[in-house]
Structure formats: structure tokens, C-alpha cells
Design a protein around this nucleic acid. Structure first.
Lengths: 384, 384
DNA sequence: CATGTTTGTAAGTATGGCTTACAAAGCGGC
DNA sequence: GCCGCTTTGTAAGCCATACTTACAAACATG
């Protein structure tokens, strides 16, 4: 199906024809429904500013494409002809989302437009397969989910670690041994379904933006084996000059003292914060001071402080009001968060930055999958 | 004149009518001419993808509005009817730009579209006038320049210190005693000319983007009495959650040790870097080690290092490839820059950030004025 | 039950870019 | 010199799209 959304390579200097305007207005309706829920054509007209006549025409188009369904009349509450509700086909349209960021397994899910997981499959990765085998594993996982769908599969959305170009090539993903792998094209060719591939942290940020309570300007820090991040400005991802925006794991903190990092430098944020590293330091503290919580707390406070040192200039430069830490809540949700927030506030304190929110979502396991969904919605429907 | 550019309050969820498409295509032509220089209607058609017929029609519209002029036929170089060149009226259309960021004076200029300064006026500010008197001084300066124009004045663009809302209110500018002053409306009402007001650092960044060699993603640090900044992502200003993006002067560096800052904290970037502060520290170093360059150098290296510590996370998070320091070249251009660049590179070094450019333009005096021009061009013509 | 209100659609209009066609003005080969 | 060829720019008519106007359907209320 022809995509309704803006073209993939959006040249900002592009002529606008009547059909583009129409496509824009169609996605406007979809967006309005997506956020506003089921409503009548007349409601849509009021919301969008289009006339009832035009709205009817556009809705007819969307009905024909089976993106939108009629949901019967609304219980009449006043005078006038009762309204017929229309809505996105929230359950009939489905999306396959993949999360390739797990330490040892690929996770896939079949989701509907609400983000509900209809089916979930976890595939342990074959040890040290070549890059090509790894691609095949991903394709197989996606295919099994596409096959099980009982609705229309709108697309496949993949959150992958590594640096990913705008056309869905994985430029670098060391843990897969991938280099310039055209993952999107491989999936599209194999499955015949529109596919989007994005960085896992970026996917998580999009998910938090669409399904969470994120502000339109937000920085998300993802902590797992490594430390990554993603940046949203006005609800849109910042990609950076080398598609590597958000990659703050190997920024040195402060003067660069601190633990050695796998990358060869010392005092990288990742060397302070990554889950393996942090766990190790906590174990050491517990071992050297058995029973005493002080050393344990101290490690967490130190890590939080280091995180804040890196975040402070970012928060200041972007005047952010929202920072999300997508990390294991049991490690990051308590002392570490408190210490980081305290230091972040004091470091950026001025009459401008009245309020910075820093939070660790209780549950961030499905963020990347939801991000895959959001990427597909955005690419295929212009909704997000 | 009705503006061709996108409306001031650009609701992203807005219906698109045929007339909007036309406005877009008109600005597309203007942009193409602005960057491509004089060319024929047929050239324009090829560049934009519009048909020759449509291009002719649009150009006729622009000629009627006197935004574009015919510049005679091009010397025929091959077969075919010789082309008639059209171009923006680069000298006939003029803009008044104001720079209110000077320590003791307001600077104004009458400029043409090329950025050439046709007339420049400097007004020393009356000492400690009330906020209202300060506005009157600004209005008078602008009026004197509008009056002297021999072409059409397209608009007035003002770069002012402080926090400025998108509708041109100066929310805060302590040194003028301004608080929520509707500077744009005051100027528009007094002069009857479309006016844009923006933060001075933002203006400088726009100027560097349009007239300099800036990448589309860029951070600009402005150092004078204070330290400010501005951020461009994909060529567009980031405004931030409280219109205060770029304001990194009062971010504490590292652990927050260091000189006391006027704001009450210690170790703010401004306390390390501002011109008065830096000059003072250099004088102290020179006094305590007369004739010895080492202490002098050390102060500069230290300041550069501190700057790099703040920039590193920003460069990493945004994957920037370009950072501009708009500051006195004699202070910042040598040792300080070298030290900062060295530290910035080592701190962000990874396989992603292959190349960060950090530079101090030799001449940054007129950046804010040029930024005023760019703001007007962007607001009135959609060009930048 | 008459009246008023709201929804949704039908018919015709206005806008804007497109296609097709052509005149104007130059070059080059004979 | 002249005939074809190329390129530019415009004229005439076409098509897509949103608009205005008008109206039927279906309900509530006095």
C-alpha cells in the first residue's frame, strides 16, 4: 500500500502538489483519531478545521483503505441526528516489532495499534554466527510473527543496537558483527512487508513519547550492557551528523578519572554506569563491607553523580524539562536516581531551568518493542 | 504585505489548503534564488521540480510583489532562445537589524539581502534608564534606520540578550530591567514594519548558518560579559522547554569547584570564561609572574579545558560535528581554543565522533546583526 | 406535532498545478 | 541564407482538491 506519511527521504526543499496536501490532510485525520479516539466525522471536521464535506470525503478514502472502521452510532445525548463513530481499526491493523538489543536473545512481538502484545516470541541467538546468519535469524523471527497475524500487518519495526542510517542500513553493530548491513531491505525483500529499522534507544524514546508521559523535548538514557541514549526535540528524533546522536556511553565524565572502559579510555560514562560494571562494583562494596549499607549506597551515589555530570550540560544546552532513564529500576530507581537528580538540579540551577524531571520508569522491558510499533505508525500512517 | 512564510504560530497539526501549497511553492522559489543566485524561469523549474508553466506563473506573482526582479538576458551560450534571468531584488529589498547585546551601546544597521551594511548607527545607552526608556531608545534607533532606507524595508530584526518568547516578548533581560516586555509589538506599532525579536546568541547562530560555513547541526557559544549559546538542529533553532535553550553560562563545570559566579554558585562556566573574568585572571597571572608566559598560558588552557568539559556531553549527545565560539579572537583563538579542542576530542573520542570542528571566527562583531537579517528573511520570505 | 439542531451528503465553484501546444529566438549544417 | 533543432516562455484547457451552498435524515423539546 502506498504510504500516507511523508516520504522517507524528505527533501525539505520539495514542491507541494495538491496530492501532497491531500496526503497531509489524510494523516491529519489519522493523527486526530489516534490521539482523540473514536469520533464522528463532524467531530473530526471541528478538530481539524476541515469542512464536514471534505472530512467525509477523506474518511471515505480511509474506510476504503481499511485503515478506519465505523463503530456504530453514538448514544444520542442531545438534539440532532446521532453521530456515526469512526475510528482507526485499532485491533485489525497489526504490527510486528522486534527488539534486537537483548544481551542474548532477540525478542519479537505481534502488536495491535494500542501497543497490546498479541503474541511474543523470544529466540536465543546462535552463538557467534556470522553477520549473515544473524540476519537470517532476525528474518525468521519476523516471518513467524507475520504469519501468525490475524489482521493486516501494517509493517515491521525493528529496534537494533548500533548505528543505523535513515534508509535502514545497520552501519555498525559490533555485537552482531554487522557492518553496513541493509537490514531493512533484507526484511522487506523476504517478507514483502514495509519495514523500518532504528536504533534501540531511539525506538525507546519514541515509545516513551507516544505511549508514556514524555515531554516533546526529552533525553532518554538507556543502560544495559552498555550505555546509550536518544534525544527528542519537538517530538522528533535528533539523528546527529553521523547518525550517532545520543551515543553518550563513551563520553568521559569530568576529568576522566575513574574505572577503565572496554573502549580503552578511562572514566567513560559506560565504565561508571553499565549494568555489569555497576553490579560488579556493588558486589565489591558488599564484599569489603559485609552488612554495611554505607559502601553500597556510596557506589550508587557516585554513579548517580557521574551521570548527572554528563547530563547537566545537555539539560542546560537544550533547556530540557524531562530526562528518562531506561534502566533496571531496582538498580537505578532509588539512591542512584536521588543522587543524580540532586546533583543535576544543583548544577543546572538558574532562573531558567526551574524544573527538570528525571525518572526511571518502573517497567521498561517493552519500550523497544513499542518503539518499533511507533516507527511503523510514523512511517506508514504519519501517526505518532 | 502578507507574509509568504509559514505562520508564526505553526501548529504542526494544521490542515493544508491549496493556498498553503502555493505559499510553500513561492517560498521554494525564493529559497532557490537565495542560494542559487540569478537564474531563468526554466532553471527554476528544473531546480524545484515544478513545471515551467507553473514556475512562470509563480514568478509573475513574485515580480508583482516586487520581491524578484528581471535582470536581462543571459549571454547565449548554446542553441535555444536566450534566457531571461530573474533574481531576488538583493539590493532593493532592505532590512533593519539591531544588536542589543553590546555592553554599553545598541548597534543598528540597514542591510540589504546580501548582508552588506548600508548604514550603521551606534547609540550609547542612557545610564540606568527605566525599562520603558530603554524600549524607546531601541525604537528611535530602529526608526532612524528605517527612515534612511532607499529601498523597501522588509522588516526589522532584533537580537537581544535575555529570554525571548516566540511572539517576540522579552520575558527576561536583567541588564535592561525588562520583564515580559512585548518588544516586537512595540516596534511594529511604532514603525509599521514587520518585526522579529530573538535572542542574540540564537541570532548569531542563524547568521553563522546562513552566511558562514556552519553545518546544519551546530552549537554556538557566545562569550562576552556573560556566556550564552544557541543550538541548531537540522538548520533550525532549538528553543527548549522554557525558551532558554543554549543558556549554558550557569551550568557548573565538573564537580563545581572554581571561581565564584555572580549568580551565587561556584564554578559556573561563566565564572571561568566570561571576558571580564578571563581578563581579570590573566591580569592576575601576569602580575604574579611578570614576563613569564607560563602562568598566562595556564589560565587559558584551564579555561579551554573547562569549556571542553561542558561541551563534551553536548557534542556527544547531539553527535555534533561543528561548534562555533563567538568570542574575541585574541582571547579565545589561540591557546584556549587548542586546549579546548584537544580535551573535547579526547573526551568524546569513539568510533562515532570522528570529526568535531571547533572554531573561533576571526570576526564575529556583526554576527548578531546578520542574525537579525536572517530572522526577517525567514519570517517574511521563508528564506534561510 | 411543529420546530430547531446536528449529521452526513450532493451539486456546483474556486484554486492551483498539470498537460498540451505553440510562438520567439537563438545555433548549426547544408 | 535557410531549414531544422533546441530552448525559453506563455496560452488554453484539464484535473485534483477543498470550499460553499443546499438539503435530507434523525433526533430532542416545547
Amino acid at each position: 500500500m502506498e504510504s500516507l506519511a511523508t516520504p522517507r527521504r524528505a527533501g525539505s526543499s520539495q514542491r507541494v502538489l495538491p496530492r501532497h496536501a491531500r496526503a497531509h490532510n489524510l494523516t491529519l485525520l489519522l493523527r486526530t483519531l489516534f490521539h482523540g479516539g473514536a469520533m464522528s466525522r463532524a467531530d473530526l471536521a471541528r478538530e481539524t478545521g476541515l469542512t464536514r464535506v471534505t472530512t467525509s470525503d477523506l474518511v471515505a478514502h480511509l474506510l476504503e483503505r481499511e485503515l478506519v472502521v465505523e463503530k456504530g452510532v453514538r448514544a444520542p445525548s442531545g438534539p440532532g441526528k446521532p453521530a456515526v463513530l469512526v475510528d482507526l481499526d485499532r485491533h485489525g491493523i497489526q504490527v510486528v516489532a522486534l527488539d534486537l538489543a537483548g544481551a542474548e536473545e532477540n525478542v519479537g512481538a505481534l502488536m495491535d495499534l494500542t501497543g497490546a502484545v498479541l503474541d511474543r516470541r523470544i529466540r536465543t541467538r546462535a552463538t557467534v554466527g556470522s553477520g549473515d546468519d544473524a540476519v537470517d535469524e532476525v528474518v525468521d523471527l519476523a516471518r513467524s510473527l507475520v504469519d501468525v497475524a490475524d489482521g493486516r500487518v501494517l509493517g515491521v519495526g525493528v529496534g537494533s543496537p548500533g548505528i543505523i542510517s535513515e534508509d535502514g542500513q545497520v552501519l555498525e553493530a559490533p555485537n552482531f558483527g554487522w557492518e553496513a548491513v541493509p537490514l531493512r531491505d533484507r526484511l522487506e525483500d523476504a517478507l514483502g512487508v514495509p519495514t523500518v529499522v532504528g536504533n534501540d534507544a531511539n525506538a525507546a524514546a519514541l515509545a516513551e513519547h507516544t505511549f508514556g508521559q514524555a515531554e516533546p523535548d526529552m533525553f532518554l538514557v538507556r543502560v544495559g550492557r552498555g550505555v546509550g541514549g536518544a534525544l527528542l526535540v519537538r517530538g522528533e528524533l535528533v539523528v546527529g551528523s553521523a547518525q550517532a546522536a545520543g551515543e553518550i556511553g563513551h563520553v568521559q565524565v569530568g576529568e576522566g578519572d575513574g574505572p577503565e572502559c572496554a573502549c580503552g579510555k578511562t572514566g567513560c560514562l559506560e565504565a561508571w554506569l553499565s549494568v555489569p560494571q555497576l553490579t560488579r562494583m556493588l558486589e565489591e562494596a558488599d564484599a569489603s563491607h559485609p552488612g554495611g549499607d554505607r559502601a553500597h549506597e556510596q557506589v550508587l551515589r557516585e554513579a548517580g553523580g557521574r551521570l548527572a555530570l554528563v547530563l547537566a550540560p545537555i539539560v542546560g544546552a537544550l533547556n530540557l524539562s524531562d530526562v528518562v532513564i531506561a534502566a533496571p529500576h531496582e538498580l537505578f530507581g532509588g539512591t542512584l536516581l536521588d543522587a543524580a537528580l540532586e546533583k543535576l538540579r544543583s548544577h543546572t540551577l538558574s532562573r531558567f531551568h526551574t524544573h527538570v524531571r528525571l525518572r526511571v520508569p518502573l517497567q521498561s522491558d517493552d519500550l523497544v518493542l513499542q518503539g518499533g510499533l511507533v516507527m511503523v505508525l510514523s512511517a506508514e500512517l504519519g501517526v505518532s
